[in-house]
Design a protein around this nucleic acid. Structure first.
Length: 462
RNA sequence: GGCUGGGUAGCAGAGUGGUUAUGCAGAGGACUGCAAAUCCUUGGACGUCGGUUCGAUUCCGGCCCCAGCCUCCA
């Protein structure tokens, strides 16, 4: 039984979909004005695992996963202006970059990826409903605001009362607002800004309303899971609740999920602090699967401390797993110890406890290594088990030898490596171990590790 | 000021009222020409002060420390 921690209740609870034939999840994607960083990668990978596991439990045709793209917003306009290009060109460019990064990380494509600019009529409709119901007001600056005092439960998701919050703790409060926590629904366009026509004049939607409109449009008024980074809990998701519930009069989301931050030196990785690494920066140094593995080594709600040391450890760990799979043809076996599988699913059932699930993978790798020579068919069975369980996490899809030999600085290509290995074999056969060791050291200096086994010499990159 | 989380071995990171997490790193052994990989064995831990308990890292309370949110942010 899958249990999920619900931010709304601060408890884990058994997940029961509203409609078991249509499990519906919405995740806040990114605003496309720059390359994705490791923090984005974490969110994408975490919810990718959630999606994969829901598909495993309910079937691929039963799970609808919507992840939006914010393709119009102040930052995009600013970036486009800096680059002297159309806002749309900026957005398109960074969407392509994002797709490339996510493909590398093995993140599955969601069922739908709605973009704000494609949902203008629906967004405007929802705002109009809010205005008609008295939840909106026009400020002196022309912007249309949501009046938070009109929505009773405001603050429930954040776990705080309006009165408790210190408005303007870190920034000046907008002077046009009646209440400091009021937020913009429709932003009046300034000269030269991209704009859409609306009952409130030319302008663009506020950030929060687009997610309310798109989620309701794609999944219905009331759906199962809504996710995103912890930083979206307040005010973004709080505001979504206020808008959606006020507009539809229905319950909005059953389970709210928030992933923890990526940190560097105990500090949140963020654009504003400037302490971020983009996904592509990391992928220039490490195979994408290493980054994915690294993300899954900590529970999704915990902080994840980023460092090269951790990435190195992740690569070493994957090397261990792939080494176990090397030279084995995974085959389904009917009489296997099923405790691995049971532990693995128990871990994921417990609020997606990936660290525990990964531990099971290592136990399987050890099981393979223990019996790979004595009972190869058993080893093949465990290898199949390892592959299929890891596959649920989006890991261990690669050919083992390809993973183990990938990367490197290409000082030596495969043919050169092979030639040096042949030379060394000749030297060994001639009992000229000094020369053989020299060749091995030469390869090691180039990052190539040799392994002499009963069936010959294999190599991998360090 | 309000609100959330958290402090576990060298590093990372799970978990549990009494019994091995796991990975990387370390030690010893097997294997190897020597290595590497692998296997076997193994050292090392639960911020602090109290309380509950036969027994607490694990429950309760105080304290200290850290991070995050209360603009935008995954």
């Amino acid at each position: 039984m899958l249990q999920i921690f619900n931010t709304l209740t601060r408890h884990k609870a058994v997940f029961v979909p509203l409609d078991p034939t249509r499990v519906r999840m919405y995740v806040c994607g990114i605003t496309v004005y720059d390359f994705c960083h490791v923090g984005h990668a974490r969110m994408m990978v975490v919810f990718d695992v959630v999606y994969r596991y829901l598909v495993h439990l309910f079937g691929s045709a039963q799970v609808i996963y919507v992840r939006n793209i914010t393709d119009i917003d102040d930052k995009i306009i600013k970036r486009a202006h800096e680059n002297q290009e159309d806002y749309h060109a900026t957005a398109t460019r960074f969407i392509a970059a994002m797709d490339q990064d996510l493909r590398a990380l093995g993140v599955l494509t969601p069922s739908q990826e709605p973009r704000a600019t494609e949902f203008m009529p629906q967004i405007i409709d929802m705002i109009a409903v809010l205005e008609r119901k008295g939840f909106a007001y026009r400020a002196a600056n022309g912007d249309l605001y949501y009046d938070v005092t009109r929505f009773g439960p405001y603050g429930k998701l954040a776990g705080r009362q309006l009165d408790d919050m210190q408005a303007g703790a870190r920034v000046e409060v907008g002077p046009a607002k009646k209440n400091p926590f009021d937020f913009v629904l429709w932003k009046a366009a300034k000269a030269g800004e991209p704009a859409w026509d609306s009952p409130w004049g030319a302008g663009r939607p506020g950030w929060h309303i687009e997610c309310s409109a798109m989620s309701v449009q794609c999944l219905g008024e009331h759906f199962d899971i809504h996710g995103g980074g912890r930083d979206l809990q307040f005010p973004h998701h709080e505001n979504e609740i206020a808008q959606s519930c006020a507009a539809t009069g229905a319950a909005f989301v059953n389970v709210w999920m928030h992933n923890g931050f990526v940190e560097i030196d105990k500090e949140k990785m963020s654009k504003s602090l400037g302490n971020f690494f983009t996904i592509r920066e990391v992928l220039a140094k490490y195979p994408p699967e290493v980054l994915r593995y690294f993300i899954l080594t900590s529970h999704y709600r915990s902080p994840l401390n980023y460092s090269d040391q951790q990435l190195d450890a992740a690569r070493a760990a994957l090397t261990t797993l792939y080494t176990a799979l090397r030279d084995i043809n995974p085959r389904v076996s009917t009489h296997l110890d099923t405790s691995f599988r049971q532990r693995f699913f128990a871990a994921l059932d417990d609020d997606f406890a990936t660290p525990e699930a990964l531990a099971v993978l290592f136990d399987l790798a050890h099981a393979i290594n223990r019996c790979r020579h004595s009972t190869p068919q058993e080893a093949a069975g465990y290898a199949h088990e390892l592959r299929s369980l890891a596959g649920l996490l989006g890991l261990l899809h690669a050919d083992p030898t390809r993973f183990l030999q990938a990367g490197g600085d290409n000082r030596l290509d495969d043919a050169m490596i092979q030639a040096l290995i042949e030379q060394r074999i000749a030297a060994r056969n001639a009992k000229n171990f000094k020369h053989a060791d020299q060749l091995r050291d030469q390869l090691l200096a180039a990052g190539i590790v040799l392994e002499d086994g009963p069936t010959g010499t294999t190599w991998r990159r360090k």
